[in-house]
């Protein structure tokens, strides 16, 4: 079976992942809505997962895909806890604008 990277090239996957990751970083910095910040974090995690899978094909080794599974498990746990915190913040403060959550500011 032919290696898919012979036709696409690993560098295209690297470009795609880097741009996707940077879009995620941009979202975290640009938006104030906490849910969109969470979504940006998910985009970043997905960019890294994609790069893992691409390099797994590059090395013809399954271990990269195992790491993607673990990162998915961590992402699921992170989202569950994060959204619970968000709901509780919303219940107390009636906003999820991260610019307004500055109770801890000294």
């Amino acid at each position: 079976m032919d290696n898919i990277l012979n036709q696409i090239g690993i560098e295209n996957y690297i470009f795609l992942s880097v741009i996707l990751f940077c879009i995620g970083v941009f979202g975290v910095l640009y938006r104030r809505n906490a849910i969109v910040v969470f979504m940006s974090i998910e985009i970043m995690l997905n960019a890294i997962n994609l790069l893992f899978a691409a390099f797994s094909t590059y090395h013809q080794d399954a271990q990269g895909q195992i790491f993607v599974f673990f990162s998915m498990a961590v992402a699921a746990a992170e989202v569950a806890v994060g959204l619970a915190i968000l709901v509780s913040i919303f219940r107390n403060m009636h906003t999820i604008d991260v610019g307004k959550l500055k109770n801890l500011k000294g």
């Binding site: 899978a53 691409a54 094909t57 895909q65």
Partner: peptide, 11 residues
């Protein structure tokens, strides 16, 4: 779809 393209079906 990218994963499918990389032939990583399970992923």
């Amino acid at each position: 779809g990218h994963y499918l393209l990389l032939n990583a079906q399970f992923l």
